[in-house]
Design a protein around this nucleic acid. Sequence first.
DNA 1: AACCCTAACTAACAAGTGTTAGTTGTATAT
DNA 2: ATATACAACTAACACTTGTTAGTTAGGGTT
Lengths: 189, 189
Amino acid sequence: MKPETRKDEIIKTAAKLFKEKGYSAVTMRDIAAAMGMKAASLYNHINSKQEILKEIIISLAEEFTNEMELIKESNNSCIEKLKQIVELHITITSQNTFGMASLNSDWMHLEEQLDYYLKLRINYEENFRSVLSSGILNKEISNKNTEVILFSMLSTLRSLYIWIPSKEDINIKKLSEQLSDILINGINK
Amino acid sequence: MKPETRKDEIIKTAAKLFKEKGYSAVTMRDIAAAMGMKAASLYNHINSKQEILKEIIISLAEEFTNEMELIKESNNSCIEKLKQIVELHITITSQNTFGMASLNSDWMHLEEQLDYYLKLRINYEENFRSVLSSGILNKEISNKNTEVILFSMLSTLRSLYIWIPSKEDINIKKLSEQLSDILINGINK
DNA sequence: AACCCTAACTAACAAGTGTTAGTTGTATAT
DNA sequence: ATATACAACTAACACTTGTTAGTTAGGGTT
């Protein structure tokens, strides 16, 4: 829609570098070099290094929070909701693999926004947990340890950013079905 | 067995800090303060910051490599081998959660040892993949996309270090069975 | 008593860090 | 033609970084 501003380009470039080495190991001079300019020039477009991290992480976290809310409130079965959560992760991750790396690995370097991020994260996990719990309650989901299930599914979904880029031209629908199938039905014959 | 040297203490302390903020964000002064000494004093026991990282990561990587080799060469069924891999991860992770954080998040900051680490890692993944493949071949494992299965299981196992510390006094055998069950049989009723 | 080893210290360095101030060239609007 | 805004620049800052050199105190061995 709206054209990409110079600020957007900086954030995108930074996210790429953050994915490779992590927020702390990337310097403003690294980002500037990748943009073909000098470090000081970055400050014509952004206010601080910290702001870059915030922009990357918070927008993604809010996107997850909002979409999760929609899924949770829908009238679908719990299994169906789980499938939608899987697709949600695959969709967002394939659109922004670099940002997802920061979201998962560099959130602890947020400063002012750390509490807000943690709030969103906890909220997301609680909604995820409640989908699982009600699925167990109404016998859609086998009565195994909810926390272990939650941990296992979330671990896989959160790691997608490491794995997705290596797959050239991913088919979101197909990958989503394959992964849902494995997470829900396992691999046993 | 052998008593813990001062060097071991430093490595352990460093690993704890690395888990919280990552290798790059932890300074030698941070490590020294956590040890109750000055940064320069650390160099009576270690040669460099890089050496600390190497000690943490390489010993763990070699442990995984060796154990995986044993599992692979055994005469157990593939499903049984998968269960042993799950238990391997849980055992090592619960013994050294801090080190596992570095292994998973800070390996890219290895310098001289990076190539060696990558060799071990690739070898490990190939052995894992071969267990899955032969399981599919002899119909123990359903014929789903091997790469998606590998990714999903590895993601969960590699994330254990984030999750295990919160469980007070874990029962390795029990957790191992629960997790294997979920990874192999899924959650469907 | 003389020695050495260990393990801490203080002081300092050279390089690198995020960031600010002030300047300059260029395109657009008046 | 003149003014304005944008987006780059150079130079520099105060601080932090990993690391080295040299010193000191204590305990064990000769």
